[in-house]
Nucleic acid binder design. Structure first.
Lengths: 212, 212
DNA sequence: CCTACCGATCGGTAGG
DNA sequence: CCTACCGATCGGTAGG
């Protein structure tokens, strides 16, 4: 824990670090977490290579720190807005809808950061893969918890298989990101929204619970 | 068009080339098409770097040739077995099921080659991205044509939105590949199979058309 | 945070 | 197909 300085050097260092990582996440969403090189990142930020390197100590630490910042961006754009709604089926829909907004914007220039990095590292054991697997688990748990709450409130049928339902909702969202990016098909997000609404609606105890 | 030689040099050259590319596709499914380096590929095949390089002339040509071979492998494992069944709803199911078998095997050690390469290049303009976009289009057209045939035969309801249906089936398959690889969750393929069966079944004019 | 540097590896070439 | 080599860039280090 560094002592408080009067000239704000610690604070400035932290701001620089955050600026580096936000840019790193943008680059990685397009070029991949491995394609993200320290030299190119330094050039993009107009600082020296060692000026970037000194903040992290190794490329793997840079990759791990980039994942943490991307997770904060994801939380701010998807999880937090979703959780502003009260528990229930509508919150489940809003959460999925926020994910689609995040990917469609796109918040990261290469589309969903985690879709990209996960495909890159899912067959390469190591700390980067482990961190991405943790992120996936958190997202799945958020979706499942949200659906389970809606079920407990009586808004989703008792016989709904919650992990199966959330697997399917997540699948529609992922596919929209992938098809829109590679297929140059902007209708993919509309298809995903329609599919998610229909899938949730089919399990509602009261068909009026989702707004038009 | 090279003249026929008596010592089989042309034939042997072609076999070597195919062996290089099959290995290249395996490596790329794990390390990515950019992470696939000519030097590492040569070491893995126990030949010199220029021995590999001479077959392709540039890394981009190697990447494009690797995509073509991966497409042949995909066709042999998914499209061809699927098309052995007569047109109809059962063929649509068999095609999706063959895709899941291909990803689950896995035929490529890093899971579906195209899921991996597409995520890597979908935000990077160029010939590699174009080739992958063509592959996606072919797969979508195969799925849509198969579903449209089933509809024309009266096995799927007249009011089915075919591109919407096939978007959803494809989404389940992609998600199974991704979740199984990163989440270490073998149930993902079972979930995808259940989702695909249910989605097709919901649109059948005769509920008996899919076997148990 | 900088300059200057390290060995390793990259894609690609020359010449045979 | 090989050896030998090119300039560029990689991750990382030394010293300030």
């Amino acid at each position: 824990m560094p002592k408080q300085t009067t000239d704000g050097r610690v604070l400035r260092g932290e701001q620089t670090r955050q600026a580096i990582l936000r840019r790193a996440a943008d680059i990685a969403s397009v070029e991949g977490l491995e394609g993200l090189s320290i030299g190119r990142l330094a050039t993009a930020l107009d600082v020296s290579k060692s000026g970037v390197f000194a903040h992290f100590g190794s490329k793997e630490e840079l990759q791990l720190a980039t994942i943490r910042v991307a997770a904060e961006v994801f939380a701010a754009h998807v999880a937090t807005p979703g959780l502003e709604h009260p528990p229930g089926a509508l919150r489940l829909w809003r959460l999925c809808d926020a994910w689609l907004d995040y990917a469609q914007a796109p918040v990261f220039p290469g589309g969903c950061f985690f879709c990209n990095a996960s495909a890159e590292f899912d067959a390469r054991p190591g700390r980067v893969r482990d961190a991405l697997a943790d992120s996936l688990r958190l997202w799945q748990q958020l979706l499942e918890r949200t659906a389970a709450d809606a079920q407990q409130l009586g808004e989703l049928r008792d016989d709904v298989d919650v992990p199966q339902l959330t697997f399917e909702l997540d699948a529609f969202a992922r596919a929209a990101n992938a098809v829109c990016l590679l297929g140059d098909d902007a209708t993919a997000f509309a298809r995903a929204r329609r599919a998610i609404r229909a899938r949730i609606s089919a399990e509602l105890t009261d068909p009026q619970l989702l707004p038009v």
